[in-house]
């Protein structure tokens, strides 16, 4: 079967098996390794992609069912060819330890900020509920998001 999608801004047509998930297509067929595999049942969040701008577990999406939808992975969020300021904030605030959850975390946060540009700490924590992290205890991830929100707010006005 052919899966049709727009991957990080580029239209793609990919030959897939009928039961192949978006995660398997990205990693095994296309070699897109910025999407991680952690549980294969939609719980851990490390395979998060943005599907038309909303976070989705790519292990639960059938590739053949995409029908032209926009799929954004971490590689799709670079700004001006450099780090996105949210990525900078994650580095600066120690939000990264083993880093396995980081790509999914970043995408989930970006989707949150689209909906809610000024989330407080409880709102950030609530949004991250579907992205497990076993290393950080979450505090520094929330710190990084808060700092980014503050800095972006400063820039806006």
């Amino acid at each position: 079967m052919i899966a049709r999608l727009v991957l990080n801004g580029r239209a793609r047509e990919v030959e897939v098996r009928p039961n192949q998930t978006l995660l398997e297509m990205l990693r095994d067929t296309l070699g897109v390794f910025d999407v991680k595999e952690g549980c294969d049942e939609g719980v851990c969040g490390v395979c998060t992609v943005l599907l038309d701008g909303r976070p989705a577990s790519s292990c639960l999406v059938l590739a053949a069912a995409l029908r032209g939808r926009a799929v954004t992975t971490l590689r799709g969020i670079e700004r001006d060819g450099g780090l996105h300021p949210l990525q900078e904030a994650f580095v600066r605030h120690g939000a990264v330890q083993c880093g396995f959850c980081t790509p999914g975390m970043l995408l989930t946060v970006l989707a949150l900020l689209e909906r809610e540009p000024r989330p407080d700490r409880p709102a950030i924590r609530a949004a991250l509920e579907g992205n497990l992290c076993r290393c950080t205890g979450y505090a520094k991830i929330v710190d990084a998001v808060e700092a980014y929100v503050r800095a972006e707010g400063g820039r806006d006005g």
Binding site: R75, G94, V96, G99, T102
Partner: peptide
């Protein structure tokens, strides 16, 4: 000093190739 870690820079852009990658 609380310096930024080199591996964190790699990890935020998913440049780190884990064992399954």
């Amino acid at each position: 000093h609380p310096v930024a870690r080199h591996d964190a820079r790699d990890k935020v852009v998913a440049a780190t190739a884990y064992a399954a990658d």
